[in-house]
Design a binder for these strands. Structure first.
Lengths: 193, 193, 193, 193
DNA sequence: TATGAATGAGTCTTCATTCAT
DNA sequence: AATGAATGAAGACTCATTCAT
C-alpha cells in the first residue's frame, strides 16, 4: 500500500527539519540526512532526490496549513483587541525562539537568485498573511477599538519587524525584553486611547 | 617592503566583496576568489588562509567606519525631525536595494552556531546603532518635536523592520511602496501632532 | 503452471531486445529493464539474475534459428549465381541498417576479455556461416558458374567486409552506394566471365 | 613553463591507451586511470575532466599523424605492386593484433547516438584513407600493374574487411591463416596476370 | 509471483590545502 | 611573492542485489 513509504518520508521530513533549523539550507547534505534518519544512501534517494526536494516539501507542508486564523473570530464578533492580544502574544514567544525555526534556511533558500522572486511560496505566504491582518485591522477600526491607520503600512511594520527579530535572534544574543518592547510598541500603534 | 603585499590584499578584498555580495558567504570558495583575482592557489594562500579570514577583514573594514552620525548634528541643534527625515530617507532607499550588499553573506556567516552570539561584530553594530538612535529620540522628545515614547522600543521597531525588509526584498519581489509606507508609519509614531 | 512465468520471460526478452539494440550491452542496467517491462525490481529478479543472462538468452534464441539456408536450394539445383544474388541482395540491404540490430551489443559483449574466445556463440555462428558459404562456392565452381577460387578466402572476405560495413555504418554516415559497390566487387570475384 | 604539466598529460595518455585497448571505452573509469597513472583523484582531474576528453585526445593524436603514406612513393615511381605488398603486409600483421588496438573502444565511442555521424574523426580518417588508396590503385592501373577495377569499390572492400577482421579478432579466436588468406585474395583482385 | 523498501559498494566531482620550483 | 601540480577528503548519485510482505 505504500504506507511504509509514506511513513519513511514523514520520518525523513521530521528529522530533516531539525537539521535545516540548525544548519540553514546550504550546508545540509544528503549525507547529513542519511545520518540522522539512519537510512542508507540508496534508501534515502529512493524517497528524495535532493535536499531541495526535501526542503520544499517541508516548507509546503507548513504553508498549506496556513489559513486565515482571524476570519472565524471576526465573524463571531470576538473583540479586535482580544484577537490582537492573542496573536501578538504568540509572536512574542516565537520571535526569540531561534532553536527550531527555519528562518535562516528559508532565507538561504530563497535568496538564491535562481529562484523566482514572484510566485514563490514566500510571496504567497506574505499575501495571505497580509489579507488576514488587513481584515483584522479594518475590523478593529470599524468597532472603534483601533485608531485610524493605514492597515497595509501597519501590517508591513508588524510583519517585517517580526521577521527581522526572528532572524537576528539567530545571529545575536537578543535581550529577552526586546520582543516585549516591540510588541508593546505595536499595540500602542493600534490601540485607541 | 610589504607595499606590494598590502596592494594585493586590497585587491583580494575588493574582488572578494563582489563575490560575497553575489553568492553569500557559505558558497564562496577559495577557488572562486583565485579566479576573480587572477591569483594562483599558492598566491592567494600567501595572503589569506580562508574565506573566513577574508570575509572578516572586509567586514571589519566596514564596521570600523561606522560612527555616530547624529551626534554632531544634535550638538549643532539641527532639529530632530530634520535629522530623522534624513536618515529615514536613506533607509527607504537602502531597504529594497538587494543588489550589492553583503547582507546575505552576513546572515549566513553569523547564523553559524559556532560563532559567538555575544560579542560579535553584529552585536556591536546593533549596540552602536541603538545608542545613536536613542540619543536622537531623546533629543527629539526634549525639544518637543517627538512624542513621548520608549526610545529603545521605537529603535528596535525601526531597526528590525528595516532589516526585515532588506532581507525579504532579497527573497521576494516587494512592491516599491512598501518601504515608503513603513517609513511613513514610523514617522507617525515619533512625530508630535 | 509456469505458463505465466514463460509469458513474463518472453515479455522481458522482447522489451530488453529493444534496449540492447539501442544502448549496446554494457550500458544496459537491470533498472532499465525494470522500467521498460514495467516490472518491479524483485519481479524482474525472479526471472533473470542479470543483464548477461537476459542477453544470452536473447542471443541464443537467434542463433538457434540459424540454419544452412543454401543446402536445400543446392539440392534443388538452383543455379549458384541465383543463390548468390539472393543472399548478396539481402546483405546489401542489411549492411547499412544500423537501426534495430544487436550488433553493437554483441560486439560489446564478446569483446570482454573474460569471455572465452573459442567456443563462444559468435565463433559458432562464424563456423556455421562459413560451412554454408563454402558449400555454395564449391557448388558454383563445380557447375562452372564461379571462377576457381579459394572458397575460405572468399568467404572471409565477404563475411568480414559485411561485418565491417555494418559496424562502420553505426559510426559514420556511410554513402548508400558503398554497400552496392562492395557487393558488385564481390560478385565480380566469383562470377566466371 | 608547464613542461611538467605536459609531461603528466603525456603519461596519462600513454597509460590510458592501454586501458582503452583492453577494456574498450565505456567501461573505463577515471578511477582506472588514476590507478594506472598513480595519480590521485584531484591530480588527474587537474589535467583531464573525463575519460571522453582523454580518449579524444589520444584519438586525435593518432589521426593527426595520418598522412598520405603513398604519395611520395608514387612520385618516386616505386612500382605499385611493391607499395601494395608493403601496406598489405602491414595490414596482415595488424589485423589479428587484438591486444593493443583501440578498435573496440573506437566502436563503443562512436556508436553512441549522441555523437555526430558526419564530421567525426572517423569519417575524416576514412576519407583520407580512401584518397590514398584510390590514388595508389589508379597509379597501378596506369602502369598496367593492376587490373582495371573500380578503385573505390576495391578500397571499400579492403578497408572494411580489414576493420571487420580487427574487430572480430577481439571477439573470437581467429585462425592465424585468416588474415593471410584475405590478403592474398585482395592481391588477386588487383594484380594483373 | 510480484512489490517496493533498503543496503552498500562504486564512481564522479569538487575543494581546501600543501609544496616544489 | 607567485605558480601550478598534486593530495586526499567530502559529498553526490546510481546500481546490483536482497528481503519482508
Amino acid at each position: 500500500m505504500g504506507a511504509k513509504g509514506e511513513q519513511t518520508r514523514q520520518l525523513i521530513r521530521t528529522k530533516a527539519y531539525a537539521v535545516f533549523a540548525k544548519k540553514g539550507y546550504k550546508e545540509v547534505t544528503m549525507k547529513d540526512i542519511c545520518e540522522i534518519t539512519g537510512l542508507s544512501r540508496g534508501g534515502l534517494y529512493r524517497h528524495y532526490e535532493s535536499t531541495e526536494q526535501i526542503f520544499l516539501e517541508i516548507l509546503n507542508g507548513f504553508l498549506d496549513r496556513q489559513q486565515n486564523e482571524f476570519q472565524s473570530k471576526i465573524q463571531d464578533h470576538v473583540p479586535a483587541s482580544v484577537i490582537l492580544d492573542e496573536i501578538l502574544t504568540r509572536y512574542e514567544k516565537e520571535m526569540p525562539d531561534s532553536g527550531n525555526s527555519l528562518s535562516i534556511a528559508i532565507y538561504e533558500f530563497f535568496s538564491n537568485p535562481e529562484i523566482s522572486k514572484r510566485e514563490n511560496a514566500l510571496w504567497k505566504q506574505y499575501l495571505c498573511s497580509k489579507e488576514m491582518w488587513v481584515s483584522l485591522i479594518e475590523y478593529g477600526m470599524n468597532t472603534g477599538e483601533f485608531k485610524n491607520v493605514d492597515p497595509e503600512a501597519v501590517f508591513d511594520l508588524i510583519a517585517f519587524s517580526y521577521q527581522g527579530i526572528r532572524m537576528y535572534s539567530k545571529m545575536m544574543e537578543l535581550d529577552k525584553k526586546t520582543p516585549q518592547r516591540v510588541i508593546k510598541q505595536i499595540q500602542s500603534i493600534l490601540a485607541a486611547e
